[in-house]
C-alpha cells in the first residue's frame, strides 16, 4: 500500500457522506481513466437565508481506492452548506490543505470528487433550465 498520512488514514476509517441520495437534484459521474474506477456525486439543492442556492445534502459513491474515498469525503465536507458558486470552486489545494498531501501517484484518484461535484452542479442547472 502506498504510504498515506495519519489524517488520511483516520478519515478513511470513518469517511463522511458516503452512499447515495434517492432522486438527487444533480448527479455527477466521473471515471478514472488510469485505473478504471468510477465515482458518483449526488446533490440536493436548497436555499440559504439570503435566498442563494446551496448544497443542502451531498453524498459520494465510488469503487475507488483510499485516496478516492478520503478526498471525496473531504470534498463533500467542504461543499456541504456552501453556495453552488462556492462549491464549484473547490480545488485540489483546498483538499490538500484540509487533508495533507496525498501520494503523487494518486493524483488522478484525488481529483475525481471535485470533478464529479462540478458535473453534479452542471447537471442540476441543466435540469432546472429545461
Amino acid at each position: 500500500m502506498e504510504a498515506y498520512n495519519k489524517k488520511v488514514l483516520a478519515l478513511f476509517k470513518h469517511p463522511k457522506n458516503m452512499g447515495k441520495i434517492e432522486n438527487p437534484d444533480g448527479l455527477g459521474k466521473v471515471g478514472n481513466a488510469i485505473c478504471g474506477d468510477i465515482l458518483w456525486v449526488y446533490i440536493k439543492v436548497g436555499k440559504n437565508k439570503k435566498g442563494q442556492e446551496i448544497i443542502k445534502d451531498i453524498k459520494v459513491s465510488t469503487t475507488g481506492c483510499i485516496a478516492a474515498i478520503t478526498s471525496s469525503s473531504m470534498v463533500t465536507q467542504l461543499a456541504k452548506g456552501k453556495t453552488l458558486e462556492q462549491a464549484e470552486k473547490i480545488t485540489k489545494e483546498d483538499v490538500n490543505n484540509a487533508l495533507g498531501k496525498l501520494p503523487e501517484i494518486k493524483f488522478h484518484c484525488s481529483i475525481l470528487a471535485q470533478d464529479a461535484l462540478k458535473k453534479a452542479i452542471q447537471d442540476y442547472r441543466s435540469k432546472k433550465n429545461k
Binding site: M1, D37, T63, I66, A68
Partner: peptide, 14 residues
C-alpha cells in the same frame, strides 16, 4: 467485484 483492493487492504489493516 465493485470494490478496490487497496481499500479492502486499508480496512483490513485498520
Amino acid at each position: 467485484k465493485y470494490v478496490e483492493g487497496e481499500s479492502i487492504g486499508g480496512y483490513m489493516d485498520a
